[in-house]
Design a protein around this nucleic acid. Structure first.
Lengths: 208, 208
DNA sequence: TCTGAAATACCCCTTCCGGGGGTATTTTTC
DNA sequence: GAAAAATACCCCCGGAAGGGGTATTTCAGA
């Protein structure tokens, strides 16, 4: 028999908290072991709850959801954290994922999608609502109209990897002086005069 | 009335090509305007086809799918490219997305999912199959057991941004000498002795 | 409560890197 | 055949980078 999935909900809106619990308990194989209104309230009891999945709101009193993720991971490392939030702020999404969230849903998703996300997460998937998927994909896309030539792009990328001019020269089988010329041209095109400023521009405009 | 979605399929497997065409044409509002077995065959005719969506295989004779994306984007900039491929190779996924693909499906998805992905793409979403979503999310996750302290992580991150030691000192309101000490400790913990090597280790192990 | 890690700061030293001023040739590409 | 890209060389200077030490304070965990 399939092992029951133990679920914990951390959500400060009592109505939503109750709605999620109700929704999930109507599904076979799912068990909402605890609900909390804040991470701080959950902290002491989480280990005992031994959850496989945690539904986590971002806007919480006290420790917010993003901050809570690493703490949760420390307490119950094998638990998968699914963010469930109204906001679609890029920094928040990436911060949550970087901190170890396994999925990210906006609260406008249907009940069925929430259930699906729980199954997904358990199966090692990465459940995301459509808007989030779109934001995530956009974050990968490079700018197509770069002022930099192919070689220049190659070189600024190597600079972003912390490589020195002579290392770049060696790797590209060109002279140090040529690399210097390229870097000068890059700086001139980007209107900067240092590595850090160049990287700032390049990252902001997704040129690499 | 809704504008018809013009679709182009670039897929070298004739059977699959035909299957996709059939599948899509059975759906209302979708129109497969052309099918090609390679990008090279499609190149000249693409502008005339004026597609809104392109289903693109990766393994193609001649120009491969990943290389084809930027060329397609140049010919028909407003077309959304959805990758449709058997492989789930990380580098290929990220390269495709970086090159401008709007979605990425593995060929094991159901017909319904393909149709859904087309609608999604058109609506500005980022259609992905579950496995891809999982890989993408994992790519964001940082390593949780870093040998580096909080401050050290902060500093190596600034180094990754091309910042000089005195810039780091200024930004963190600490002395240059302190920054030097931190960097020494970072190098020692990572067993390296240069910025580029440190960044190599740090990126490989997702420490930032 | 105490121990160790983290964060802070300072000294010494040498090497060679980074950025800016030029100019010029060859190869691509449209 | 003109324009852009890629290549290569000269000059200069300041200070950044990396390695050798040592030492203090703060703070979390056992």
């Amino acid at each position: 028999m399939q092992k029951t999935i133990r679920i914990v909900i951390i959500e400060d809106d009592q109505i939503l908290q109750h709605a999620y619990k109700q929704l999930i308990e109507d599904e076979c194989g799912f068990q909402v072991v605890s609900c909390y209104s804040s991470f701080d309230a959950a902290e002491k009891k989480l280990v005992n709850d031994d959850p496989g999945i945690i539904l986590l709101d971002i806007e919480l009193p006290g420790t917010n959801g993003v901050q809570a993720i690493p703490l949760i991971k420390k307490l119950v490392p094998k638990a998968m954290v699914i963010m469930l939030t109204v906001y679609e702020i890029e920094e928040q999404i990436f911060a949550a994922l970087a901190n170890g969230a396994s999925g990210y849903l906006t609260k406008d998703v249907s009940s069925a999608k929430i259930i699906e996300a729980i199954y997904d997460a358990r199966a090692g998937g990465g459940p995301m609502s459509k808007k989030i998927a779109s934001i995530v994909i956009k974050s990968f896309q490079k700018n197509t109209d770069s002022p930099l030539s192919k070689r220049e792009t190659e070189i600024i990328k190597m600079i972003s990897e912390g490589k020195k001019r002579n290392e770049i020269a060696d790797e590209l089988f060109i002279e140090l002086e040529t690399v210097k010329t390229h870097i000068k041209n890059i700086y001139s095109k980007l209107n900067v005069n240092s590595r850090s400023d160049a990287l700032k521009v390049v990252k902001k405009n997704r040129l690499i």
